[in-house]
Amino acid sequence: MNSLIKNLFTLDDPDSFGVKAYLRLFELFTATYTIIYAWKWGSYIPRISDVVLPLGLAHYIDVSIFFGDVMPWVLASILTLVTLAAFLFRKYSWLYLPAFFLLQLLYAIRFSLGEIPHSSNLVGFSLLGLGLGFAFFDKNRQALHFAYGFVIFFAGLGYTTAAFCKLIGTGFHWVDGAHLWLWIAEKSTDVLSAEGSYNLNLLQMIALDKRIYATLILLTGIVTEFFAFLIWWKKARPFVTLALIGMHIGIYLAMNIFFLPYMIEFVIIGFPLYILFDKLNKKFNLEHRLSVSY
């Protein structure tokens, strides 16, 4: 257990410029996407006037009181200010925790029409990790390492859980290529509805050509998901990350579902970029030009 904790939270990483810049980059990504979601979701809410399917907090709060033209903008503005304060002033970094609950509320309001998207979950875990880190740890370094390990843990858990869901929901024959054919038809309908037209791409044509090809694509996907928990270990992390990014590119090509925030965040958290930052620092003496602290 201790070995896992050590691998997750990377507490043995050097106290270097590169590590500081790396963890701050992770924090910047989280704060930026929090603000993007605040305004993206907030600007859509005025169109909603009925709850089709309550999600999360909407089971306990009547989210319809936040419908209309004013409340979504108020919530998005507060969330933006709180997030900026947490990012810019270490004294107020604990505000990531209320920022998380505000974003959770905005999610419940925005997605009350039946859609259950998962593209923002990793940002949600990152924000919660930062909130818990700065609320429970006195040192900024520990707080940032905690947030980083927290999101790595839930990323690995999420994918492996998804693989188990498939095995429980369908069984080992989940990999049957005919299932991919049906999903390609479903996602093509979504593209047709969104864009007014659609054309099959090369991977879809290959999958539809022979059942065995479609089966192999599904098999690759579920094996990748199943072993995603290996991302918890530092040495395996870059390889698991590459496999997950490859899987997401495959999902995009086969089913037109693209998780841009996941891809960006995996590039940040999945590779030891601090080594690169330290090398750049050594070469260009960045430490004296940029003021970077935990």
């Binding site: 999600l55 999360g56 089971h59 959770q104 999610y107 419940a108 997605f111 259950i116 998962h118 923002s120 979950n121 990793l122 940002v123 949600g124 875990f125 919660l128 839930f154 999420g158 994918y159 859980t161 998804a162 869901c165 498939k166 429980i168 929901g169 369908t170 024959h173 989940w174 049957d176 005919a178 299932h179 049906l182 999903w183």
Partner: peptide, 18 residues
């Protein structure tokens, strides 16, 4: 909560083949 309480989820998408 039927597997969903953002950001917590069992990530059930595409779990029911066919």
């Amino acid at each position: 909560h039927e597997g969903e309480f953002w950001p917590f989820s069992i990530f059930p998408m595409f779990s029911q083949g066919g």
